[in-house]
C-alpha cells in the first residue's frame, strides 16, 4: 500500500515537472524518468505487458525521439535564427504526430489489459483456451479485438505519412548529431545488436503465451535502429526505396489481407485461422512499427547501410 501511494505520488510529481520543468532539457529528462516510474508502477500492479510497452515505447523510443527533436530544434534555431517558425512547426508537428500515435498504442494496451471481473474479461477467459493462446492480451489484440489493432497499425502508418508529408523531400538532410568519436562504440554496437535482435524475436514469439508481443519487439528493434543511426552504421537516404516502403506498409497490409482472406474462404471477417497467423501478423507489425520509428528518428525518407 505504501508503495502504491509512493508510486502514485511520484508519478504526479514527475508529470508535473515534465510539463512545467524550468528548462526544456530538464523537462525531457523528467519525461523519461516518468516513463520509468510508470513502468515500475505497471510492474507493481502486476501487468508486465504494460510495463514492457511503457518501458520500450514510452520511455525508450519516445525519449530518444524527443531528444533528437530537441537537438534539431536547437540546431535549427542556431543556424537560422531569423525565421525558425516553419521549421519549428514542422518538427513540433512530427513530435506531436508521433505522440498521438503512441498515445493510441498505449491506450490500446491499457484497455486491452483492463481485467477484473468485468463481463468482457470473464467471457474472454472462457474463450481464450480455444484460440491456443496463453496471453490474454495478445488474445485481445490479435484475435478478439483485432480490428482495433489493425486500425492502430494504420494509425502509425498515417502518422508516419503525415510526418513525412510535413517534412518533405528537402528534409533528407535533416541534421543528425555526429557519431561520438570514441573507440567504445563499435564494440558496443557489435555486442548489442545481435543480442537485441534475439531478444526482440523472443518477445515476439513469447507474445502468444507470455507478456510480450509485436509492440514491445518493435520498440526494441527501433532502439537498435536508433543506435545504428546514431553511431553512423546506418545513414539517412534521400529517398525511400521499395523495400523501405514495403516495410512500412507490411504490417497493415498483411493484417488486412489475412482478414480479407478469411472472408474469402467463408470465415468471419478478420477471424484468425491459427497461431501461425498470429505470428505472421505480429512479425509484419513488428517490422512496420520498428521501421517507422527508426525512420522518424533518422528524419529521412530512407535508410542506407554503411560499412565503417
Amino acid at each position: 500500500m505504501v508503495i502504491d501511494v509512493f508510486l502514485a505520488l511520484g508519478l504526479v510529481v514527475l508529470a508535473w515537472q515534465a510539463l512545467i520543468g524550468g528548462s526544456l532539457f530538464r523537462g525531457i529528462v523528467m519525461f523519461i524518468v516518468f516513463g520509468m516510474v510508470l513502468t515500475l508502477a505497471w510492474a507493481w500492479l502486476g501487468s508486465p505487458d504494460l510495463a514492457m510497452a511503457e518501458a520500450a515505447i514510452g520511455a525508450g523510443v519516445t525519449g530518444a525521439l524527443i531528444m533528437i527533436a530537441y537537438w534539431r530544434l536547437r540546431r535549427i534555431n542556431a543556424v537560422e535564427p531569423r525565421d525558425p517558425s516553419p521549421a519549428r512547426s514542422r518538427l513540433a508537428l512530427v513530435i506531436a504526430v508521433l505522440a498521438t500515435g503512441l498515445v493510441g498504442a498505449i491506450g490500446l494496451a491499457a484497455v486491452s489489459a483492463l481485467t477484473g471481473d468485468a463481463t468482457a474479461a470473464r467471457v474472454m477467459n472462457e474463450t481464450l483456451p480455444d484460440t491456443g493462446l496463453g496471453n490474454p492480451i495478445t488474445g485481445v489484440l490479435i484475435v478478439f479485438r483485432n480490428l482495433d489493432t489493425l486500425l492502430e497499425v494504420a494509425v502509425v502508418l498515417a502518422a508516419y505519412i503525415a510526418a513525412r508529408a510535413a517534412l518533405g523531400r528537402e528534409s533528407a538532410d535533416l541534421p543528425l548529431p555526429p557519431a561520438p568519436d570514441t573507440p567504445l562504440l563499435t564494440p558496443l554496437v557489435v555486442t548489442l545488436a545481435p543480442l537485441t535482435m534475439v531478444v526482440a524475436i523472443y518477445l515476439l514469439k513469447a507474445g502468444s503465451q507470455y507478456p510480450g508481443g509485436a509492440f514491445q519487439a518493435s520498440a526494441l528493434l527501433a532502439a537498435l535502429g536508433v543506435l545504428l543511426v546514431l553511431t553512423g552504421r546506418v545513414g539517412p537516404a534521400a529517398a525511400a526505396n521499395w523495400l523501405t516502403r514495403a516495410g512500412l506498409v507490411i504490417g497493415t497490409l498483411v493484417f488486412c489481407l489475412v482478414g480479407l482472406g478469411m472472408l474469402v474462404i467463408g470465415a468471419p471477417l478478420l477471424a484468425i485461422p491459427g497461431i501461425w497467423a498470429v505470428y505472421l501478423i505480429e512479425a509484419a507489425m513488428m517490422i512496420s512499427i520498428g521501421l517507422t520509428l527508426v525512420l522518424l528518428f533518422a528524419g529521412a525518407p530512407g535508410l542506407s547501410g554503411k560499412r565503417s
Binding site: 563499435t186 554496437v189 557489435v190 545488436a193 545481435p194 535482435m197 534475439v198 524475436i201 523472443y202
Partner: peptide
C-alpha cells in the same frame, strides 16, 4: 533468431 542475430554481427563487426 540466433542466425539472424549472428548475421547482424557479421555485418557489423570489424
Amino acid at each position: 533468431a540466433a542466425v539472424i542475430g549472428a548475421s547482424l554481427f557479421v555485418l557489423l563487426h570489424v
